[in-house]
Design a protein around this nucleic acid. Structure first.
Lengths: 345, 345
DNA sequence: TTGTAAGCGTTATCAG
DNA sequence: CTGATAACGCTTACAA
């Protein structure tokens, strides 16, 4: 008497089940499944039939345990609530799926400690590679140690020199914005940001400075440690004696602070007070006046990051480290003082 | 002569390495690692020391392959660019991490076919459970088959009756909004949405209808297949003879269409044309006038979904299926006609 | 309390 | 071209 009644516990079928049904060996099934090299035509047919019949799906765990790759990549971002990272993650997932990989997502909320734990986790899961936007204040030295052996691409913020990275040309983008304000005749242009020490922001400030210096104008930096304080700082700057006539805010959050500050003071963006923001958020066309912004090439950034990562996964250290820098785009709307604007959204 | 020079290829340490160094058996190490039951004090110390020394990290693949759980949950959302889902995913990841699980993320872009493939993928990776916001037009019957055996929680949109779900009380939230407009004296209130057949929207429409019918007023539905067309429809409705004096848009995208339409027609939200939106997007306070909205309890929705999923994972079918419905919140700002408003952001 | 041994489902190796 | 066999790193009986 067999104890097991006919498939009462319908286990997931394994290669052996398929092999048995197709009356071949397990390794033949395996070979067939990964491209069908060295397997005769009629056997192929039998195996295919068995696979279909049983609804067989290979187990990625076993596959990963045995072979090198787990078909899994890790993505560690500061957040996903932010639409920039939200879009990136979506694009990355899509590109990874096209290459047969799943995405394990982590968000570190700008905390290096959390980030460390998440890297450790990805290592435990044997992720094939990692795309990382690192938390500010990360100890790059120990980070590099934690990551040895795992292919890595930095996105949005660079790591050390030998690490592949995909970045925005922040300085250049910044220059475009400031030069545009200049072209509208402004000479008192303020640059607004929190967390000025962070890579992206310090680069953008540098771009601002280059243009301001080149035009022989005086810098006006409005900075603060957090966005709440920034709002106050903007208010004070606009009330002061030598108030700026044009504002360049370095992130959507900074733009936010500016707009809240203006609202509170019953000021308004106008031809006398221009504003250009960073990050082309979806509500930019809805504001009054509609918001001119620097747009980041999100799709391209994500695609390049994934491409670079898979190159690294597949070809290892044979490739030179690469740093891809993509240009931003100035989307002209009304807040800069333009009459005619670029296409709506 | 040993061929292998002293750890030139520094393999990741395994339980056996730890066991050897601590001079105990592999299973003792394993036992120690999962809570230290049945392991004497001095052995504990030796093992702990060895683990520390080698920097040992258990391999989740092997662990999952052998035991039941993979410590992995799948999350399938329509998108993450949308701030609602972006926030959800972040919260879910956090809650899952607190329970020792990693999150595999997929976005199906409202495509049932893609969704199917992604579910299959999660099955191949043996995810312990799935949180799903299903694509409209999904064949629930075949979905249910694809998911048999995998603990599942529906979020934002329900599936079949026996599936656990965490949902917003859409009707109630909708009623709050419409009643609020009523309280401002409006009698011509329009309800605006695209994709009116989708669960969330049809529920919200139902809530709108209940209040309108209860007040003995006439319904005014402005609907379209997509948001581009919706924009036009809004424009026409406002130009028509019996134009509404108050608008209730059922999603942030719909609100978007409304605002773009108004901008284009040089109309403006005012005391004569009120607007309440759905989803408390971060820029709501920035609009002019600031936007009154229904806010969804994102943190709570996510937490409940994760909690429910883990209950299901741990206790299986012993628990009754549950449907948790959480209330929305009306955030009063200016666009509804209120003078005094709820706290800023 | 501890160690030995048998898998979990794949794939790589190697002899037929 | 094909099939047995040995890993991959861990856990869970079961025996000591």
């Amino acid at each position: 008497m067999k104890k097991q009644s006919p498939d009462l516990p319908p286990r997931r079928p394994t290669v052996l089940d398929v092999a048995q049904l197709a009356r071949v060996g397990a390794s033949t099934v395996s070979r067939y499944l990964r491209g069908g090299n060295n397997v005769s035509h009629d056997v192929s047919l039998r195996v295919a039939e068995a696979v279909r019949k049983l609804g067989y799906q290979p187990d990625e765990l076993a596959r990963g345990l045995r072979g090198g790759r787990t078909h899994t990549i890790g993505v560690i971002f500061p957040q996903t609530a932010n639409s920039f990272f939200g879009r990136c993650v979506q694009m990355i997932e899509q590109e990874a799926a096209a290459r047969g990989c799943a995405v394990i997502l982590h968000t570190h909320n700008e905390s290096p400690e959390l980030q460390s734990r998440q890297l450790a986790t990805l290592r435990r899961y044997r992720a094939d590679g990692v795309i990382l936007t690192c938390a500010p204040g990360s100890d790059l030295h120990s980070l590099q140690k934690e990551l040895t052996g795992i292919p890595l691409v930095a996105l949005d913020r660079p790591l050390w020199d030998e690490a592949d990275a995909v970045l925005l040309r922040n300085r250049e983008a910044s220059r475009m914005a400031v030069e545009h304000l200049l072209s509208h005749g402004h000479t008192a242009i303020a640059c607004i940001t929190a967390a000025a020490h962070m890579y992206t922001f310090s680069e953008r400030v540098a771009g601002y400075r280059e243009v301001i210096a080149g035009a022989g104008l005086r810098e006006h930096l409005i900075v603060a440690d957090n966005y709440e304080q920034l709002q106050g700082a903007v208010g004070r700057a606009l009330d002061g004696r030598d108030a700026p006539t044009a504002l360049f805010s370095l992130s959507n959050m900074a733009t936010f602070s500016v707009l809240l500050s203006l609202t509170k003071a019953h000021h308004k963006v106008s031809r006398e007070l221009a504003l250009i923001g960073f990050d082309d958020v979806d509500y930019a066309p809805l504001l009054n006046p509609s918001l001119t912004t620097i747009r980041q090439p999100i799709g391209n950034l994500s695609q390049q990051a994934v491409q670079l990562l898979f190159d690294r996964i597949l070809y290892g250290d044979k490739r030179q480290p690469e740093r891809i820098m993509l240009p931003g785009e100035l989307v002209r709307r009304h807040s800069c003082g333009c009459r005619r604007v670029d296409s709506g959204s």
